[in-house]
Amino acid sequence: MELIIKAKGIVKTFVDGEVETPVLKGIDLEIKRGEFLSIMGRSGAGKSTLIYQLGLLDEPTGGQIDINGTDTLALNWSKKTDFRLKYLGYVFQDYALVPELTAVENVALPLLMRGIQTNKALEKAREVLHTLELHQQVNNFPSQLSGGEQQRVSIARAIVDEPEIIFCDEPTANLDSLSARVVIDILKKLNKSGQTIVMVTHEDEYARQTDRIIKLADGLIESEEILTPAK
């Protein structure tokens, strides 16, 4: 199976004056196209830090990250933004919707950035929201949506542009179990249709529904468990 992410020796050390905090101490990780990977570990283990490096939101102190065959760390600041726009999608724990944009406008934003006409972008955004069963809420502002609804809008925004990989950092942490399950089901369905997903979670129940679980501890991968060997 084709690799979509090839990360070697990722090191991340936070430096604050004299104090150095090593958080990632050399992580090797390969992710296959179409894989649903979950990252687990204790609080402070470095899960978020890892996903930020993989998602090109941060610069690792050392190592190599190839995504889709591109040496991403060689990209400059604005090329990285472009790369994120083209290939990566994000779902954050706290939904992170832009408050003055309606649901449909939030979802349309990545499309507008890609130069798609406003009308067409909004139309496409509406379609995606429909598939996530948010017909009623397309014109609501984030403040007029429940947590679960906001997280679904946030997923819609992540997938509208059909990215190669979506990164989810604890997408269910702020949700009740019913809404959480809806979100997991959506992610599973997306994965079934071929979407590569990297998800950080604390919930064993949700991690068990993915293809592979890696556990971080002390800045390294402590253990790995393959749940769907076929992939």
Binding site: S78, D82, L85, L88, A96, V98, P99, L109, P110, M113
Partner: peptide, 16 residues
């Protein structure tokens, strides 16, 4: 600032 960061994260360029 947070939302500006998020817009940048999802690929909105700074110029916009």
């Amino acid at each position: 600032r947070k939302y500006i960061g998020i817009m940048k994260a999802i690929g909105t360029n700074g110029r916009s």
